[in-house]
Design a protein around this nucleic acid. Structure first.
Lengths: 106, 106
DNA sequence: AATTTGTGAAACCAAAAAGTTGCACATATA
DNA sequence: TATATGTGCAACTTTTTGGTTTCACAAATT
C-alpha cells in the first residue's frame, strides 16, 4: 500500500481537507463537519495524508489538531517545475513572434 | 466516469508518459516500448490523458502522435498557487526573524 | 467510579481503476 | 488483392479505493 503525494491529492475530499487546514489547524471532528461523509471516512483521509506527510498532527489532551505540512507541497511544485520551464519558453517564443510581426507591419 | 487532472497525474505510469511526450510527440507503440505493460494498457492511459485534455493527438496516416498539452499543466500550477503564497510568506517571516536576530547580535 | 467525548482501526462492501486478452478496422506494403 | 502494421475498444479479471458500521481505548466530565 505505497501511497505518494500525487495519489493523496487525487481525491477531491482530500484536497478540500488540505484547503481547510491550510488556514489553521483543526480537529478531525471539526473537519468532518464540513463534509457529508462520516467522521470515520474523514479520519481515513487524514491517515492517508499523514502517511505521506502532507499533514502533521499536534496532540493536545485527547484532541488532535491537524495542519498542513507546507514543505511537502513544494514537492508537487518541484515536479511541476520541469513543465513550467516548457510553457515559459513557449511564451517567450510567442512573444518574439508577435514582436517580429509588429516590426514587419511597420 | 468523470476524470480530472489530479486523478490523471496520480498514476505513476501516466506521469512517466507525460514526461516522455513532453520532449517530443510520440506514437503509442513508441511510448509502450518504455514500459513493462502491454501496448493496450498504455493506450488506455493515453485515452484517459486525452479525455482530460492533458494530451493532444496529431494524426499522420495510420499513426497517431501524442504530445503534451502544456496549457493544461498550468491548471495544476494554478491550484498550487494558493499554497505557494503560504510557503513564501513563511519564508519571508523566517527571513525577518533571522534579520532581527542579526541586529540583536550587533 | 461511571459516563461522555474524541479519536483511530479493523471488518466488510460497493464502486472504480488498471491490467490482460481478443477483437475490429483502417492504412500501408507486398 | 492479400498481408502486415498501427491503433482503439470491449469484455473480463484482479486490485485498489472510499465508504459505512462496529468496535476499542484514552482523556475529560459527572
Amino acid at each position: 500500500m505505497r501511497r505518494d503525494i500525487f495519489q493523496a491529492i487525487a481525491d477531491p475530499t482530500r484536497r478540500a481537507i488540505i484547503a481547510l487546514i491550510a488556514v489553521h489547524a483543526m480537529t478531525p471532528n471539526a473537519i468532518a463537519e464540513n463534509f457529508h461523509t462520516t467522521r470515520q471516512a474523514v479520519s481515513r483521509h487524514l491517515r492517508i495524508l499523514t502517511e505521506c506527510e502532507l499533514v502533521k498532527q499536534e496532540f493536545q489532551g485527547r484532541e488532535i489538531y491537524y495542519s498542513l505540512e507546507i514543505d511537502k507541497m513544494k514537492e508537487i511544485d518541484n515536479w511541476l517545475k520541469q513543465y513550467r520551464k516548457i510553457w515559459e519558453t513557449r511564451f517567450i517564443q510567442l512573444d518574439q513572434i508577435l514582436l517580429a510581426n509588429k516590426k514587419k507591419k511597420k
